[in-house]
Simulated assay, not measured.
Amino acid sequence: MTIDRRKFILAAPALIAACAGPQTLGYDGPKVTSIMAFKSQRKLYLLHGNKALKTYPFQLGFAPVGHKQFEGDGKTPEGTYIIDRRNPQSEYHLSVGISYPNARDRAFAAAHGRSPGGEIFIHGTPDVVAGRKDWTAGCIAVTNPEVEEIYAMVGDYTPIFVKA
């Protein structure tokens, strides 16, 4: 069987896109200047100045009350961090990284002879846990369509404020 050149040229972009992982949306609206996450309300706000551009409900770590202190404690960090990385190949659809642990978090854990943990993200939700409440190991989980919007709207170095 032969593939004619025109069919190959037309099919190549689709093949490349299929290998690239989840597709992300484009965004050309106002810049997201900060993110506010209120754990007790389970609400995440993408802000431009003091105006909310988008609001999302979310799920937390399996031990949702209190600030993350140690690896494996199931808590979601509280405090001021930045978005410091993104993962288009995340096990949880897409994800943007939160800069936990900061220097204070590392010092506290070290003073107790423990690891602070890490790898905290805003990420999507695998089908296996959809609908379960507070199931992550400390991350902030939103739906897959929501994380696609967040991934497109939020740039690296955006501050994120996580409150109780």
Rank of each mutant, 00 (worst) to 15 (best):
I3L: 14
I3D: 01
D4S: 12
R5N: 01
R5L: 11
R5I: 09
R5D: 05
R6I: 14
R6A: 14
K7F: 13
F8V: 11
L10F: 11
L10N: 15
L10S: 10
L10K: 15
A11S: 12
A11L: 13
P13T: 15
A14V: 05
L15H: 04
C19D: 07
P22V: 09
Q23L: 10
T24Y: 06
Y27R: 08
Y27P: 05
Y27I: 08
D28E: 15
G29D: 03
G29F: 03
G29K: 04
P30V: 02
K31I: 07
K31H: 05
V32Q: 06
T33F: 03
T33W: 05
S34Y: 01
M36Y: 14
M36H: 14
A37R: 04
A37H: 03
F38D: 08
F38Y: 14
F38W: 11
F38C: 01
K39D: 00
K39E: 00
Q41G: 06
R42C: 02
K43L: 13
L44W: 07
Y45G: 00
L46W: 07
L47H: 03
L47K: 14
H48Y: 13
G49W: 06
N50Q: 12
N50C: 00
N50S: 10
Y56M: 12
P57T: 13
F58L: 07
F58P: 03
F58K: 04
F58D: 05
Q59C: 00
L60Y: 05
F62N: 09
P64M: 13
K68P: 02
Q69T: 07
F70P: 02
D73E: 01
G74E: 11
P77I: 10
P77A: 07
E78M: 06
G79M: 10
T80W: 00
I82C: 01
I82H: 06
D84C: 14
R85N: 13
R86G: 01
N87H: 06
P88E: 09
P88S: 11
P88A: 11
S90K: 05
E91A: 09
H93W: 14
L94C: 05
G97I: 06
Y100S: 09
P101T: 11
N102P: 04
R104Y: 12
R104V: 12
R104A: 15
R106L: 13
A107T: 12
A109V: 13
A109D: 08
A109I: 12
A110Q: 10
A111G: 15
P116I: 10
I120L: 05
F121Y: 15
I122P: 03
I122N: 06
G124C: 02
T125K: 01
T125C: 06
D127N: 06
D127M: 01
A130V: 14
R132H: 15
D134V: 14
W135L: 03
W135M: 03
T136H: 02
A137M: 13
A137W: 13
I140W: 04
I140T: 08
A141G: 09
A141L: 10
V142N: 04
T143E: 02
N144K: 13
N144W: 11
E146S: 15
E146G: 11
V147P: 01
V147G: 00
E148H: 09
I150Q: 03
Y151D: 10
V154C: 02
T158M: 04
I160H: 03
F161K: 10
V162N: 00
K163W: 10
